[in-house]
C-alpha cells in the first residue's frame, strides 16, 4: 500500500466480487452477499488486514483425475487439457519483504509452453489467502505491470460475468480454506469452467484458464510458487 498506492477499496473490490461469485457456488461456506461498505467497516485483524481480507479455515477436500486424453475420451469423461506448468521454490530469497515471487521468473516459459499470451486467458483462479496475494500474482504473472495492480483492479470487473473473471467459485476468501486442499480449489474450479460444469457462474465461452498457487511449508523466505494454463477440449 505504501509502495504502490493500493487502497483498501482495491482489495475490497476483489473480495466483494469473489463473494458474488461464491453465492453461485453451492459448496461455498459464505452464503451472504458482501458490500464494499461492510468490507470497509469490518473489524481490524492485523492492520491493514481486516476481517474480510482473511480466509476462513475449514475442513474440505477436492480431487480431479489426471489421465491421458485418449483415456478420458474412452471413458467419456469431460476433461480439460494442460497446456503449460511452472513451479519454483525459494525465489528472491534475499528480498527483505516478499513483494514478488517465482512467477516473475517463470511466466515467459509458462506462456511459451502454452503458446498463449496472457491476454488470451479467459479467467484466472489465483491463490487468495489474502487479496494482496492475488494482486501480487496478477502482477507477477504479467497480467499487469509490477505496481500496476491497483490501477488494474480499478479498470476491471472480477465477477464470473465480468471482463476479467477471477476466482469464480468465490476463492478461498468466500468458499473457505480447506487446509492443504485449499491449493486445488482454483484447479478444480478451472476444470469445471473449461468443461462447462460451472452451472450458474459459468464464464461465457471459457476456452483458456490460468490457475496459480502460492505457499507450502515455508522452509525459508521465498515460498513456493506455481501456475498452470489449461484449455477446454474444443
Amino acid at each position: 500500500m505504501r509502495l504502490h498506492g493500493a487502497k483498501r477499496e482495491d482489495f475490497g473490490k476483489l473480495c466483494v466480487a469473489q463473494r458474488a461469485n461464491a453465492l453461485r457456488y453451492p459448496h461455498a461456506l459464505f452464503k451472504k452477499p458482501l458490500t464494499l461498505d461492510e468490507y470497509l467497516g469490518a473489524r481490524p485483524i492485523a492492520e491493514p488486514l481486516h476481517l474480510f481480507d482473511c480466509v476462513m479455515p475449514c475442513a474440505g477436500a477436492d480431487a480431479f483425475l489426471v489421465l491421458s486424453e485418449e483415456k478420458a475420451k474412452g471413458l467419456k469423461l469431460p476433461y480439460a487439457r494442460l497446456l503449460g506448468t511452472i513451479e519454483r521454490h525459494n525465489a528472491f530469497s534475499s528480498d527483505p519483504v516478499q513483494l514478488r515471487a517465482g512467477w516473475a521468473l517463470d511466466r515467459d516459459e509458462l506462456y511459451a509452453q502454452a503458446a498463449c499470451p496472457p491476454g488470451d486467458v479467459d479467467f484466472v483462479q489465483a491463490y487468495d489467502d489474502y487479496p494482496v496475494i492475488t494482486l501480487m500474482q496478477l502482477e507477477d504473472l504479467g497480467l499487469c505491470g509490477k505496481g500496476e495492480g491497483p490501477a488494474f483492479v480499478r479498470e476491471h470487473r472480477f465477477t464470473w460475468d465480468g471482463d476479467f473473471p477471477l476466482n469464480t467459485s468465490g476463492g478461498q476468501l468466500s468458499a473457505g480454506q480447506a487446509g492443504a486442499a485449499g491449493g486445488f480449489l482454483g484447479m478444480v474450479e478451472a476444470i469445471r469452467q473449461l468443461t462447462g460444469e460451472a452451472t450458474e457462474r459459468q464464464v461465457p465461452s471459457a476456452k483458456i484458464g490460468l490457475v496459480s498457487g502460492f505457499g507450502m511449508i515455508n522452509y525459508d523466505r521465498g515460498l513456493g510458487s506455481g501456475a498452470a494454463i489449461l484449455s477446454s477440449n474444443e
Partner: peptide, 22 residues
C-alpha cells in the same frame, strides 16, 4: 520495513494482551 498491530489472536496469551504491535 513494515509494522502491524494485531487485533486478534487465537493464542490465549496474546488474546488477553491485544492490541499487540509487531
Amino acid at each position: 520495513l513494515a509494522a502491524t498491530v494485531l487485533h486478534h489472536s487465537n493464542d490465549l496469551f496474546f488474546r488477553e494482551r491485544l492490541p499487540w504491535r509487531l
